[in-house]
Design a protein around this nucleic acid. Structure first.
Lengths: 144, 144
DNA sequence: CAGTATCCTCGCAGATACTG
DNA sequence: CAGTATCTGCGAGGATACTG
């Protein structure tokens, strides 16, 4: 499917994959720590991490040259997933937890909760749903 | 899992579900049109639409009182998924298509492409990844 | 610790046929 | 048109045991 939604889902659309990325953004680095936090089976975790590395979303690095310990770290492509995660967290917080969710994302300095993501025109003006269009083809996002 | 990411994925984390929402945001309304656009099997589509309605993301309405034709429409909860979709589209466009993707999201008035989503502090100042913290527990997004 | 290597199952997706 | 109903498979995901 020639659609950025489908293509993105191809790389991160899997349940476990997004949870791995969530944990990575929270500073998790090692295989075992990912495994304990997500509760995923080891073979599945191996495969998911492998795919993430293949897709250039994470890299696998030795912690020290002579020991078999590894860190998984997000690449720039992986870090760029942050807005997706934020959007997901904010939606879940509002619509599942009614604004009282267990997780806040805060400004490190002021400790204040960050704003809901807003959609902005090229000049910075906020746009509502109705002011947006998908191109090309008003109802032709999709497929081929 | 008591985590807004997991909870959100519970409701929209499925491959087909997000594609349905993508199409709904593009104005698709009827069962058959969803089916043709996504290529999903009918029984699966039935189930997915049913779940979306159960979860309050879409509603099913008769087009006219006496005929068995229906429209599926996004609720406010469903429309609120827009930032997630936008974030996904923008990521796919940049990191899969290298900025030359097949889909642009434009300001209906000016026809200009909208900005990449930015993360903002309470005062509107844009925040980088490093300036964010997840609370509570620096590395404790997660679970229970 | 950081994985492989197997085995097993069950549930989801697909296909097809049918209905108001 | 807008679905239900049924069958069927296959493959992702889990559990467990093993390894450098």
């Amino acid at each position: 499917m020639n659609c950025p939604v489908a293509q993105t889902l191809e790389q991160i659309g899997d349940w476990w994959t997004l949870l791995i990325i969530r944990d990575a953004l929270n500073g998790v680095k090692t295989f075992t720590e990912f495994q304990e936090r997500t509760g995923i089976a080891k073979n599945i975790l191996t495969e998911r991490l492998g795919t993430l590395v293949e897709n250039g979303i994470m890299v696998r690095e030795k912690t020290r040259p002579e020991v078999n310990r590894y860190h998984y770290r997000l690449t720039a492509k992986g870090e760029a997933l942050l807005p997706i995660l934020i959007a997901i967290i904010q939606w879940g917080d509002q619509w599942v937890y009614g604004g009282e969710g267990p997780l806040r994302i805060v400004d490190a300095k002021s400790k204040e909760t960050i704003r809901p993501l807003t959609i902005q025109a090229a000049d910075g003006r906020p746009l509502s749903r109705a002011e947006l269009r998908f191109h090309p083809g008003s109802a032709a996002t999709t497929t081929a």
